[in-house]
Amino acid sequence: MEADFTRFYGQDLRGLCWGENRWGVRRLLSHIKGLPRDSAFVRALSGVSAYWDENAELLAQIFDAMERQTYYLLKVNGNDPSEPVPLQRPGQKIVEPETVSLAEFSGFLNG
């Protein structure tokens, strides 16, 4: 948190707590709560989801839409594509890919 106070507020946290010009608890708490998403403190508390912002979500939605569009394009043209799998978002369970035996794959290739 000391690095965040220096980076974002240009203040020495130790001085704010015990120095001549120390801040009150309420002011310190409001500045801690106001730390941005990319601060070390927020990232440490939030984990991976701290990196997932609105831009990342929009890009994931675009990717998912393009995957669906490709799926439907292939389907309309007589192919039999597998269903598109959406990109994993933070906090979601990992989707296990469908497995195929070697015999099934060989049969698929040989027609």
Score class of each variant (00 low, 15 high):
99 T>Q: 12
5 F>G: 01
66 M>H: 12
38 D>A: 08
21 N>K: 15
47 G>M: 03
78 G>M: 04
38 D>K: 09
111 G>I: 06
1 M>G: 07
13 L>D: 00
77 N>E: 07
15 G>A: 09
104 E>R: 06
81 P>Y: 02
89 R>H: 11
95 V>Q: 01
108 F>T: 08
35 L>P: 03
25 V>C: 06
24 G>N: 01
34 G>V: 04
4 D>T: 08
74 L>H: 01
12 D>C: 13
85 V>N: 06
56 A>R: 13
20 E>Y: 05
43 R>V: 13
31 H>E: 09
7 R>Y: 15
47 G>I: 05
99 T>L: 14
68 R>D: 05
2 E>C: 05
22 R>V: 10
43 R>A: 14
111 G>F: 04
52 W>E: 04
21 N>M: 09
76 V>G: 05
95 V>W: 00
52 W>T: 06
61 Q>R: 11
17 C>Q: 08
44 A>R: 15
32 I>Y: 15
30 S>A: 10
9 Y>R: 10
104 E>C: 05
48 V>T: 12
20 E>H: 09
71 Y>S: 00
58 L>P: 08
101 S>V: 03
69 Q>V: 07
4 D>F: 07
88 Q>W: 04
99 T>D: 12
63 F>R: 08
7 R>W: 15
5 F>A: 01
21 N>Y: 00
57 E>A: 15
33 K>V: 12
54 E>F: 11
77 N>H: 12
68 R>G: 01
37 R>F: 10
103 A>V: 13
87 L>I: 13
66 M>F: 13
58 L>D: 12
1 M>K: 05
83 E>T: 01
61 Q>H: 11
48 V>A: 14
8 F>T: 07
14 R>C: 12
63 F>I: 11
105 F>V: 05
91 G>P: 03
92 Q>N: 11
19 G>K: 03
64 D>P: 02
23 W>C: 09
30 S>G: 07
51 Y>I: 08
52 W>K: 03
21 N>H: 06
22 R>Y: 01
108 F>L: 13
7 R>V: 14
82 S>V: 06
1 M>V: 14
43 R>I: 09
5 F>P: 01
79 N>R: 12
46 S>L: 11
55 N>A: 14
16 L>Y: 00
51 Y>L: 13
1 M>F: 15
80 D>V: 13
42 V>G: 05
108 F>W: 12
30 S>P: 02
102 L>C: 08
42 V>N: 07
45 L>V: 10
50 A>Y: 11
8 F>E: 08
64 D>F: 15
107 G>E: 15
75 K>E: 10
